[in-house]
Design a protein around this nucleic acid. Structure first.
Lengths: 242, 242
DNA sequence: CGGATCGTTGAGTTGTATCAAGACGGGTGG
DNA sequence: CCACCCGTCTTGATACAACTCAACGATCCG
């Protein structure tokens, strides 16, 4: 899986061009983290950015009542705090959800590359725009009933995993607890549990041991009201092909 | 108000530099729209981008049940579909909420300028990152109880209006109906009405005739759990000062 | 074996939606 | 000038979705 990742970023960062900028090939050194570790904390000054190599990470925030709220999940190849390139202060935490390997790249390097290479800049900009699009969708989905909301989240994960080649048919890894799901959907753990049972009862999915299986994709999509346009998958692909 | 706006964008687009690129000064021609008009429709191909000169606009989407959901409000100086620069297909509608004047700029021009002027590119990129940050906050806020959610929205509007010099003390224009508020918060109109009454009863705000007055800023902020960091106002200011 | 984490269940409560109807106000046409 | 209409705001009553609290079962691991 490091391979598919590397393929994306070698193209993205156009490693041959880097030499002419006097920057050696960017070192992507994988660093291992256990589950539930902070990678970035709200309020941190952005000096480098995270690349998720494997595992599941998330963007979250702790509200004044002490409850954690997950605003996004990040899978292999995602750069969750790319925003730090142009915003000094980060306004959310980035944490691992499952075990993860990640890499860090200094923002100064990326910024330098972007200045000399508008195509790279555009590609990274596009990544942040897709993130924004997903947030926007979550705003809307957050207003739908619990069952639909949950279904939508599962659709999104499955579709994104598939897009990076990490779904095997309609089976993929989604290694988190029901508590994590409750923080991502804004539902209580108890309610998540019951709604998951309902999804299973309808024979739409099974979800055990961090493995998600969709038995009826059309049914799940219909229930969720899932329209994948907001993921801009075709355009994200540009970043890999260009 | 066109003046404060123009000041921002003349600096942003660095009009003197444009001449050397062989592009005449960008024409910002104000176009008038009545309330509740579409400026951009979901699925449109992005060819130009909108600048809000005056009035209130929003980003919204109609879900499969036919209900409109507002995901963001846009005030003077905002460029709500800047994302179209790098995403071909727009995944939301942009509409006027009150009467508005707006301008359009061709994406091709902006793209050309960005290629020659990394500082402009960074500034526009930053604008889209701040938008993303606001969406992310809305995801979180959407999970809080109705009263807090409403309070949070009002804090955000007041603070943003103030930041562009369009709040007079703790009074600002916020020209929308309770139906609009319900679409923005994901509450029923009836409930919005009652929660507004509650805010008034607590002597936190009054909201009549499209004019919002905050009587107790600290109280409202406390209730809302409003932490303005996510608006990145100081950094947005960069875009105006640079 | 004991403790921790995670998943599951039941019962009671609260928040918010829905439905229905009335009040107010501004605009339009007779 | 009045009558009417439409959009908006407001109120009351009822229904339902989701939350909380509390407890128990199942694993896993030390």
């Amino acid at each position: 899986m490091l391979n598919t990742f590397a393929a994306k970023f070698e193209r993205l960062f156009d490693l041959t061009a880097l030499e002419s900028d006097g920057i050696r090939a960017i070192q992507i050194r994988p660093i291992y983290f256990t589950a539930n570790q902070d990678l970035v904390r709200e309020g941190d000054r952005a000096t480098r950015c995270v690349i998720v190599l494997s595992g599941l990470a998330c963007t979250s925030k702790v509200d004044e009542t002490g409850k954690r709220q997950i605003a996004a999940f990040h899978i292999s190849g995602d750069m969750p705090d790319l925003m730090g390139l142009h915003l000094e202060i980060l306004d959310s935490d980035i944490r691992t959800v499952s075990e993860c390997t990640v890499a860090f790249i200094d923002n100064s390097i990326i910024r330098k590359l972007c200045n000399h290479n508008p195509r790279l800049a555009a590609a990274l900009w596009r990544e942040t725009l897709i993130d924004a699009s997903i947030f926007r969708e979550w705003v809307n989905v957050g207003r739908r009933p619990a069952l639909n909301r949950l279904a939508h989240l599962l659709c999104e994960v499955m579709r994104r995993m598939d897009a990076i080649g990490m779904a095997d048919g309609l089976v993929c890894s989604f290694d988190l607890t029901q508590t994590d799901l409750s923080e991502a959907t804004g539902l209580s753990v108890v309610h998540v549990n019951r709604q998951l049972q309902e999804l299973r009862r309808r024979e739409l999915i099974t979800f055990v041991n961090g493995q998600l299986t969709v038995h009826n994709w059309a049914g799940l999509v219909g229930l969720a009201g899932f329209d994948e346009d907001y993921l801009h998958l075709a355009e994200a692909q540009h970043n890999q092909i260009n």
